[in-house]
Design a binder for these strands. Structure first.
Length: 112
DNA sequence: AGAGTGACTGGCT
DNA sequence: GAGCCAGCCACTC
């Protein structure tokens, strides 16, 4: 058995595909890339992606819809601010109607 | 090389 | 439905 390796570039590509006004989870991305157990690593990849402006990391949250990486966006605008700008309501660091705005690449980008 | 840590998740209580 | 516990992989000290 060969172990699949997580490629940051792949993660960034998926994150870039997230539609405006939608969000996804670390687990969903990991699953789509075929590395379901790498949810934590995806989050870590986001940390590295912090340097890239093309990667809307603010559209990626944890499975509960909480802005876990909010503290990491203390650049100019907070993660919450960016999400609300896209029409996503955020309350108590949690996305309102999370299920409704959730975008699952494994489903939306079905490979067949 | 061993131990600790973390932008997580699923299962059980 | 919210909270606690264990499993997960890469990175740092």
């Amino acid at each position: 058995m060969e172990k699949k390796k997580l490629v940051f570039q792949e993660v960034y590509e998926v994150v870039r595909l997230i539609p405006y006004g939608r969000v996804t989870t670390y687990g969903a991305i990991a699953e789509y890339l075929g590395v379901k157990s790498y949810a934590r690593m995806v989050g870590w990849a986001m940390n590295a992606a912090h340097d890239l402006v093309d990667v809307p990391a603010h559209r990626v949250v944890n499975g509960k819809g909480e802005l876990s990486g909010q503290s990491f966006f203390e650049g100019s605008e907070s993660m919450q601010q960016l999400l609300e700008r896209e029409g996503i309501q955020v309350k108590e660091d949690k996305i309102v109607d999370f299920r409704r705005v959730l975008w699952n690449p494994t489903i939306e980008l079905k490979l067949d």
